[in-house]
Each structure stands twice: as structure tokens, then as C-alpha cells.
């Protein structure tokens, strides 16, 4: 290698369940070898909450379901050379996007929130109110895949993606050898 500098990687979980971050750990002992080539910047894995410098790779889990997700995603696009959408939520909205299908209602968001906080059959919401504290980020009209908000360079499929496909993608990207996924490894579940 001409440049011995470690690649800087940032990660974030937007509208995701953290399963994709868990899947990063599924690389198991291969992580040790990988850590010789990368260092983590902003990431829940380091608990660094803002970018300390420009990063080579940004890994996004989850799509955008609120305005904070959108701001964070734009931050990542600005600060990372290569942006990877990791998992079905980041790629196509995933589980949170289940709410998109009810969006044909007259007041879709109201209907969704009312069912979630007021009228749903399995609720224990004593206040009978929809939370509206000003510190809560505003919920978007629908859940957006990352690629509808910013340009995404690579999308690693799966829910969660296997440790194998994450490893092979990262390892080949770092060496500049990534040519796409082996179709035997593609999974949407």
C-alpha cells in the first residue's frame, strides 16, 4: 500500500433496529484483521457523536422516518467519500416503511399516530396523548429509503445482512476490488 493511513469509517443507525450494527459484529474474528485497516470515527461503536474529520466510508443503517434522520444522513454524505446503505431499512425503508402502505388515507400521519398511541388494541398509554414534546424530531410524512434523500454509493442487502456479505464487501472495497455481490449471497431477509 502506498498510503499506510487507516481508512476512516463512520456509522450511524437512523430508522433502524440496530440489528445491522449487530451484524457488523457478526464478522467475528475477521474484525480483528479489518481493524488493522480501518479506524472508527463517528459511530455508536465508539460513542463519538460528531465527525472529528472527513471519513473514507460512511455506513448507514435504517432509512429516514423523521427530520433528524434526514439531517444526519446529509451530514454523512457531506463528510464521507463513500456512502454505504447497510440492510433493507436503509435500502428500501424496511420494517418502518410498513406505515407507508397506509399513507393513502385522508390524514395518513394522524391515522398512524392515533393507532400507535390512542386507538391500537394493545396500548398502555395512560395519557391517551400523542407525544409532542418539542425535543422530539418531527415525524416525516412517510419513510424514505436513503437513496431518495442523498446519493448512495453501495447498498448491502439483508435484514440483517450476514457478517459474510458485510465482510466481503468492506474488504474488497478497501482493496479497490469490489465488483458487486455474488448472487448466491444476496438475501432480503
Amino acid at each position: 500500500m502506498t498510503d499506510p493511513r487507516k481508512a476512516r469509517v463512520a456509522t450511524v443507525s437512523l430508522a433502524g433496529c440496530f440489528g445491522c450494527h449487530m451484524a457488523i459484529l457478526d464478522m467475528d474474528e475477521r474484525l480483528i484483521g479489518l481493524m488493522e485497516k480501518v479506524e472508527f470515527d463517528r459511530s455508536p461503536l465508539t460513542d463519538i457523536k460528531t465527525f472529528t474529520r472527513r471519513c473514507d466510508i460512511g455506513i448507514i443503517e435504517g432509512g429516514c422516518c423523521n427530520e433528524e434522520n434526514v439531517h444526519t444522513l446529509i451530514e454523512f454524505r457531506k463528510n464521507c467519500d463513500v456512502l454505504i446503505a447497510l440492510g433493507q431499512c436503509a435500502i428500501m425503508g424496511g420494517l418502518p416503511a410498513m406505515r407507508n402502505a397506509i399513507m393513502h388515507a385522508a390524514e395518513p400521519l394522524r391515522e398512524c399516530l392515533e393507532e400507535a398511541y390512542i386507538s391500537g388494541p394493545y396500548l398502555r398509554n395512560m395519557t391517551r396523548l400523542i407525544p409532542n414534546d418539542p425535543v422530539l424530531p418531527l415525524v416525516l410524512d412517510r419513510v424514505y429509503p436513503c437513496s431518495e434523500v442523498v446519493d448512495i454509493d453501495y447498498q448491502i442487502p439483508g435484514c440483517a445482512p450476514s457478517g459474510d456479505i458485510i465482510y466481503s464487501t468492506l474488504a474488497t472495497l478497501l482493496d479497490g476490488r469490489f465488483t458487486g455481490f455474488d448472487r448466491e449471497d444476496i438475501r432480503f431477509d
Binding site: 455481490f181 444476496i186 432480503f188
Partner: peptide, 22 residues
């Protein structure tokens, strides 16, 4: 359908708008 997507190397379906039937 999913298996056909795998075989045909369709990793993401995002080129067209989703019709989202209800």
C-alpha cells in the same frame, strides 16, 4: 419472486416509484 431477484442479481428495487397498494 424473491429468489428470481437473487438469481437475476437484483439487489435493490428503487428505479421506479413504489405503487404501495393498500
Amino acid at each position: 419472486l424473491q429468489a428470481m431477484a437473487y438469481r437475476l442479481e437484483m439487489t435493490v428495487a428503487t428505479r421506479f416509484p413504489y405503487l404501495e397498494p393498500c
